[in-house]
């Protein structure tokens, strides 16, 4: 009987606390600002990017000529893309309580600026940025990348 009540308590606990994430929001960040022609691409569609749209794992973002975009991720990483640039977000996990942290992205072409966020502080080895030429490892910092 005691075991029964104990499991009941445990089960209700699970029901009530399905997520202990820092942000139980389902998305991984937002588009903060857009200038010119910018597109947000996921597995099923390509849409015109607008300020305050949500970002998800697997999204790509592409800027046209004289166009640029600023992004904010849930771990406070901020990223911007200059003209004719493209980046795809392979994986982004920010659940510090569960120690699930990861930021894997591919920088395909163009210019980028970054200020790394909490993942770079908590688990710098979990950040991987791939370019056509190299793999970048990041330790808490602001930096620029150009691929041409």
């Amino acid at each position: 009987m005691q075991t029964f009540f104990l499991s009941l308590i445990l089960i209700s606990g699970l029901l009530f606390f399905p997520s202990i994430d820092a942000r139980a929001l389902g998305t991984i960040g937002i588009i903060k600002s857009v200038s010119g022609e910018v597109h947000l691409i996921n597995a099923t569609s390509t849409i015109k990017a607008l300020a305050n749209m949500k970002l998800n794992q697997g999204d790509s973002i592409r800027t046209g000529p004289n166009s640029n975009v600023g992004l904010i991720f849930d771990d406070d990483t901020v990223v911007s893309l200059g003209s004719n640039s493209e980046m795809s977000i392979t994986e982004f996990l920010f659940h510090p309580a569960a120690q699930e942290l990861s930021f894997v992205a591919t920088l395909i072409t163009g210019t980028f600026s970054f200020i790394s966020g909490q993942i770079a502080k908590l688990a710098p080895d979990k950040i991987t940025l791939e370019t056509p030429d190299a793999t970048l490892g990041v330790r808490g910092t602001k930096f620029l990348v150009k691929i041409d």
């Binding site: 200020i115 970048l136 910092t141 930096f143």
Partner: peptide, 20 residues
């Protein structure tokens, strides 16, 4: 193609590190 990486000071003035 080529990749160029430039390090800047953080907003609070600290410097981090990028490995290429």
């Amino acid at each position: 193609k080529q990749t160029t990486v430039v390090l800047l000071p953080d907003p609070d003035g600290k410097l981090g590190e990028v490995t290429v």
